[in-house]
C-alpha cells in the first residue's frame, strides 16, 4: 500500500544513485557535471520527500527531475558559450566500461551527438527499459511526439553508427 511506504532518504540514494548518475551522464556526457546534477537531484528529493508516495513514485520522480535538470544544465552551458563536448573530451572523458561491448560503447558515445529530446527518449528507452507511454509520462510529452523522437533518434543513430563503423572497419 502506498500509504504504508515510509521513504528513507539514505536508502533511496543507495538504491537509485546509479540510475540518476547514468541518466545525467548520458544526457550531459560529462562525469563531473553528471555528479553535480545527481547531487542536486537528491537534494531536491530531500525537499520533496514528504510528497513521495511509493517506491515507483520515487523512481518516476527521480527520472523526470534528472532529465529536466540535465537539460537545464546543458542549456546553461550553451548560454555561457561552453562547448560541452569539447570540454568533456578534454577533462572528463569517460573510460570505456569493461562490461560494454565495443559496438555498445561506440553507440553510447554516438548517442551524445543526437538532439537532446531524441537522446532523452532513447536513454529512457534503452537504459531504463521504459515503454513509449512511460517515457511520455516521464518527459511530460505527448505519446506521438515520443514515438516520433524514438524513431527519428534510432534512425539517426543507426545512420551515424553505420558511417562511423564503416570508417572504423576500413581503418582496422
Amino acid at each position: 500500500m502506498a500509504s504504508d511506504w515510509q521513504p528513507d532518504f539514505e536508502q533511496l540514494v543507495d538504491e537509485h544513485q546509479s540510475m540518476v548518475f547514468s541518466l545525467a551522464l548520458r544526457m550531459t556526457g560529462d562525469r563531473g557535471l553528471a555528479e553535480e546534477i545527481a547531487q542536486d537531484v537528491f537534494m531536491e528529493l530531500d525537499g520533496h520527500i514528504a510528497k513521495i508516495e511509493s517506491q515507483q513514485h520515487a523512481i518516476f520522480w527521480l527520472r523526470r527531475v534528472t532529465i529536466s535538470r540535465s537539460t537545464d544544465a546543458l542549456r546553461r552551458r550553451r548560454v555561457r558559450g561552453i562547448d560541452l563536448w569539447v570540454e568533456m573530451d578534454d577533462n572528463h572523458a569517460t573510460p570505456v566500461e569493461v562490461q560494454s561491448t565495443p559496438l555498445g560503447s561506440r553507440l553510447e558515445s554516438l548517442l551524445s551527438t543526437l538532439p537532446e529530446a531524441q537522446r532523452a527518449a532513447l536513454i529512457l528507452r534503452y537504459q531504463e527499459d521504459l515503454t513509449p507511454e512511460e517515457i511520455a509520462a516521464t518527459l511530460g510529452a505527448p505519446l506521438a511526439t515520443v514515438k516520433s523522437q524514438l524513431q527519428r533518434g534510432l534512425k539517426l543513430l543507426r545512420a551515424k553508427a553505420e558511417s562511423e563503423l564503416k570508417e572504423y572497419i576500413r581503418a582496422v
Binding site: 548518475f21 560494454s100 559496438l103 555498445g104 561506440r106 553507440l107 548517442l111 532513447l122 537504459q127
Partner: peptide
C-alpha cells in the same frame, strides 16, 4: 547493442 551500451553505470 544499444541496450548493452546503455547499461547503467
Amino acid at each position: 547493442e544499444l541496450r548493452e551500451g546503455l547499461e547503467r553505470r
